[in-house]
Design a protein around this nucleic acid. Structure first.
Length: 129
DNA sequence: GCGGTGACTGAGC
DNA sequence: CGCTCAGCCACCG
């Protein structure tokens, strides 16, 4: 039942990239996909976060990976199967100083102009080439 | 093992 | 502006 090595590498890269997002900032699924070299796999980035382990013992888990800092390209918190999930994410973001506005249709939005983080290259990779 | 599903997105109407 | 559509591909039944 092991994931293919390639898939595992992808999950790994995504989690590392998400950990690079500074406290109090946000970015998009698509941008993370770009950073890990597969710009067309924004959807899979979402899956990586969806399946982020809760287990504190895991190499990557919901405590050491700031999953809440990833939102969609429209600047809103993506709806999910469990509606409460979006509220949990909004609360987590507000807890670190990010302003989350409620739009008319119940959408939860963050202003990229203020909180966006979109480097072309990961800080950890900068200066290595 | 196959097929539906989905924390996505940019393009095209 | 809003809606569909096609890629995307690991997960889960």
């Amino acid at each position: 039942m092991r994931r293919s090595e390639e898939a595992q590498a992808f999950f790994h890269a995504v989690y590392l990239a998400v950990q690079e997002i500074p406290h109090g900032k946000v970015t998009t699924y698509g941008h993370i996909a770009h950073l890990v070299g597969t710009p067309q796999r924004a959807r899979q980035v979402g899956m990586c976060l969806k399946h982020l382990p809760l287990d504190p013992e895991a190499r990557f888990n919901s405590d050491n990976v700031p999953w809440q800092r990833v939102i969609n390209s429209r600047g809103t918190i993506s709806p999910r199967s469990v509606p409460e999930g979006t509220q949990v994410q909004a609360t987590a973001l507000r807890a670190e100083g990010v302003e989350v506005r409620r739009l008319a249709l119940g959408e939860l939005a963050v202003d990229f102009e203020v909180y966006g983080w979109f480097p072309e290259v990961l800080p950890s990779e900068a200066g290595q080439q």
